[in-house]
Design a protein around this nucleic acid. Structure first.
Lengths: 351, 351
DNA sequence: CTGAAAGCGCTAACAA
DNA sequence: TTGTTAGCGCTTTCAG
């Protein structure tokens, strides 16, 4: 059995460099106010011993962790089949990395996990949280509020407790939807259908509202409920064609949904866009550029949303001394405030 | 300004319950060897004060963190456009959650980040690491070895230093590839082409080897290099059709690649599977079931791979007292050993 | 500019 | 069974 080589401590480095622990600490933390020759000596000792600070000890006194939690509610398989979260995570990760802050990922699989997440957030592991609050009745917003944890939400949270003052980053779902539908109208389409997303998510509701803003007197039969998946898009498209064989356009709540709809349209011999024009939402390149025909869609910069969330949270954290306190909502007291990013229509071949 | 309400400590709970800190600690950690009435009293005090243990303080003395790192090298955009990692993460998360262990996600964007990751792993944040070593020359294996961090790899790592004794979980890429190609042969196909994955990843190399095992004397022109993306599949497919217009089957290194190939085949008027049979790899449902025609493919249980990685690591961690020591490789000394999971051929319409 | 000393909140021997 | 006592490794006043 190999012996356990004990990690060198500050003490050891201090001894080796012939200085006090305090001096080593100063050097390790930037070296402000330490004379050059000493800095050199300490640096060398650190190097030789392979010293790495113990974060637990450091956090214990500083009450900082340089880590933030990303909480993703994952009630459905969809979450990871969809590149959406991956892109968002990527944006977050980039921003955090630049600040030497770690990303702790908390995936929750339904109610049972909420207690665990609550415990974790209150346990003093992280300085803040980024929460993707997928569902309208999600208890997560209330939970982070109680934990007193500075939090930024991804997407406008539902209308639960503690949501009112919540800080979030979202796309202009409603405005984007309006633009999509207006584009279809501009193309001369009149019988425009909508396949919604999962209606327990605000993004789906907002896009539906945007659709209605333009199609004020739409026949109820022209709206079919989907769930943001290709399969949902197929089902809804079939239903729509049954109810309104004369429809001439479809606005789908996201690109995945649109891809399902396209398949059904083709299978039923409708030409796109000649017979039926189709517009999606997201501009997820792996989907929108790969469909046949390529998809006209509403672009939202998903990675940028992630970056922005991280940036907002970090800025708030900077504005306060140390760890979590009672004032969990970064929106309160002149802190950061929610951001709604604009969307743009990307024209391809489907409309 | 709201006053910062200081978190209650063990001390506070002890005072309130009229016992010593030690007793509270015992109760909080399971309550072994504490008489009932006291347990009750302490529990009540904990409840009333809303006490939550400070993990930094705990880790400082126990040298456990109940957290493991998942390191994903992400040199390309591909990583998150591909549901692969999401599924794997999901499996890992499930297993860790069941053990009240947290998942710290480290995304690395190229060389610059390696130092950061190394520092993190040596910094005493986590008890072990799960590493996805995507590329043959990846420095990550050597890095975790030096950090003395118990590690399990996702996919057979390349042949760098410290890889020899590495523990990993992988699919039987070579065997799966053989099965795919034999299936095509069994269908009477003779001019079978292969679109490889990114050849700096062992999975791509292994699948190519499997292809060669069956097609011993294959014309070099029937092998085209891809990169696991649909776009790569398209490029490779076009090249193959140019070089060998008479090919009658294609084995693609993964489903995404196959989907690209299918598009090119259709665009060029080849019927699938009548003119050209196509087999993929992965059985990624969101891809394989959505292609036209649905894809015959080699199934690997990706989520299970993730679970298994986590299980292997946790088992190893259990077998040792506390934190990381010098013996980083779980494979050494009767610990867990690598696992290669079997694959199965899933027949759909494309071959 | 540097060192000495006092904890951060918790667990784990050891005593009682 | 319970309490007392030392620290875990680090930062941070406060003297010098």
């Amino acid at each position: 059995m190999t012996e356990i080589p004990p990690r060198p401590t500050l003490e050891a480095v201090a001894a080796r460099a012939g200085v006090s622990r305090a001096t080593v600490s100063r050097v390790v933390n930037g070296g402000e106010g330490v004379r050059r020759p000493l800095v050199e000596k300490v640096r060398r000792a650190v190097e030789e011993l392979g010293y790495v600070p113990n974060q637990a000890a450091r956090s214990l006194v500083t009450r900082r962790h340089d880590a933030i939690a990303v909480v993703i509610a994952e009630p459905e398989v969809r979450v990871f089949a969809d590149p959406f979260f991956g892109l968002q995570l990527r944006g977050i990760s980039k921003e955090l990395t630049a600040r030497d802050c770690q990303l702790v990922l908390l995936l929750t699989e339904g109610r049972a996990d909420h207690a665990r997440v609550g415990r974790y957030l209150s346990g003093g592991h992280v300085d803040g949280a980024l929460v993707f609050s997928l569902h309208l009745d999600d208890p997560l917003p209330e939970l982070v509020r109680r934990a007193g944890m500075p939090t930024v939400f991804g997407g406008r949270p539902g209308w639960g407790e503690g949501t009112r003052s919540a800080v979030y980053v979202d796309s202009d779902n409603r405005g984007g939807a309006r633009e999509a539908v207006r584009h279809l109208v501009g193309l001369g389409r009149r019988r425009i259908a909508h396949i919604t997303g999962a209606l327990d998510q605000t993004s789906a509701v907002d896009r539906l509202d945007g659709f209605r803003d333009v199609m004020v007197d739409v026949a109820p039969g022209l709206i079919a409920e989907g769930d943001f998946t290709p399969a949902g898009g197929e089902r809804a498209m079939r239903l729509l064609l049954e109810r309104h064989p004369d429809l001439d356009a479809v606005f789908a709540a996201n690109d995945l949904t649109a891809s399902g709809a396209l398949r059904v349209l083709r299978a039923q011999g409708r030409r796109v866009p000649e017979d039926v024009a189709v517009v999606g939402f997201d501009d997820m390149l792996t989907v929108a550029e790969q469909t046949d025909p390529p998809l006209t869609t509403v672009r939202q910069d998903i990675e940028e949303m992630g970056r922005l969330m991280a940036r907002l949270l970090l800025r708030h954290l900077d504005g306060r001394g140390g760890g979590p306190d009672g004032d969990g909502a970064p929106g309160v007291g002149g802190g950061p405030t929610s951001v709604v990013l604009p969307t743009t229509l990307v024209r391809r071949a489907s409309a």
